[in-house]
Measured scan of single mutants.
Amino acid sequence: AITFRFEGQEKAKKFYEKLMRQNLEATIHIHGDEVHVTVH
């Protein structure tokens, strides 16, 4: 698994949606202002 870190939720959401379109499995974790997107 690879984890990407984002400042702010907007960028993270766009990235997450892009992964979903590519049929990749990903989970999102929100830590205050920092958002972690883990790709499995």
Rank of each mutant, 00 (worst) to 15 (best):
A1T: 14
A1H: 15
A1I: 12
A1E: 14
A1F: 14
I2V: 11
I2G: 03
T3P: 02
T3L: 11
T3H: 08
T3M: 08
T3V: 14
T3G: 02
T3E: 09
F4V: 15
F4R: 10
F4K: 10
F4N: 05
F4M: 04
F4L: 07
R5Q: 11
R5M: 11
R5T: 13
R5F: 15
F6L: 02
F6Y: 02
F6S: 01
F6T: 02
E7M: 11
E7H: 12
E7K: 14
E7L: 13
G8I: 11
G8V: 11
G8F: 10
Q9Y: 15
Q9L: 15
Q9V: 15
E10V: 06
E10F: 04
E10P: 03
E10M: 05
E10K: 05
E10W: 05
E10D: 10
K11F: 07
K11S: 14
K11P: 12
A12R: 01
A12T: 01
A12F: 04
A12M: 03
A12D: 01
A12V: 02
A12C: 04
K13W: 14
K13Q: 14
K13E: 10
K13C: 15
K13H: 10
K13I: 14
K13R: 13
K14V: 10
K14R: 11
K14E: 14
K14F: 07
K14N: 08
K14Q: 12
K14Y: 08
K14W: 09
F15A: 02
F15I: 02
F15N: 00
F15T: 01
Y16P: 00
Y16D: 00
Y16I: 11
Y16K: 02
E17F: 04
E17Y: 04
E17Q: 07
K18Y: 15
K18E: 14
K18V: 08
K18W: 15
K18D: 12
K18S: 12
L19N: 00
L19H: 01
L19P: 00
M20R: 11
M20W: 03
M20Y: 03
M20G: 03
M20V: 11
M20C: 05
R21T: 08
R21K: 13
R21I: 08
Q22S: 10
Q22H: 11
Q22I: 09
Q22M: 15
Q22K: 10
N23G: 15
N23S: 06
N23Q: 08
N23L: 07
N23M: 06
L24G: 02
L24V: 13
L24Y: 10
L24M: 10
L24Q: 04
E25D: 11
E25V: 13
E25H: 15
E25Y: 13
E25I: 14
A26N: 01
A26R: 01
A26E: 00
T27S: 10
T27I: 06
T27G: 03
I28T: 01
I28D: 00
H29S: 13
H29D: 06
I30K: 05
I30E: 05
I30D: 05
I30T: 06
I30A: 08
H31I: 14
H31K: 09
H31Y: 13
H31E: 13
H31N: 10
H31S: 11
H31D: 10
H31A: 08
G32N: 06
G32W: 07
G32M: 06
G32I: 05
G32P: 05
G32D: 06
G32E: 08
G32R: 06
D33C: 07
D33M: 09
D33Q: 09
D33H: 09
D33I: 09
E34Q: 08
E34L: 10
V35I: 11
V35H: 02
V35G: 01
V35T: 04
V35L: 03
V35Y: 12
V35A: 03
H36C: 12
H36I: 13
H36K: 04
H36S: 06
H36W: 15
H36Q: 04
V37S: 00
V37N: 00
V37G: 00
V37K: 00
T38N: 04
T38I: 14
T38K: 08
T38E: 05
V39R: 02
V39M: 07
V39Y: 07
H40P: 05
H40K: 12
H40S: 09
H40I: 13
H40W: 14
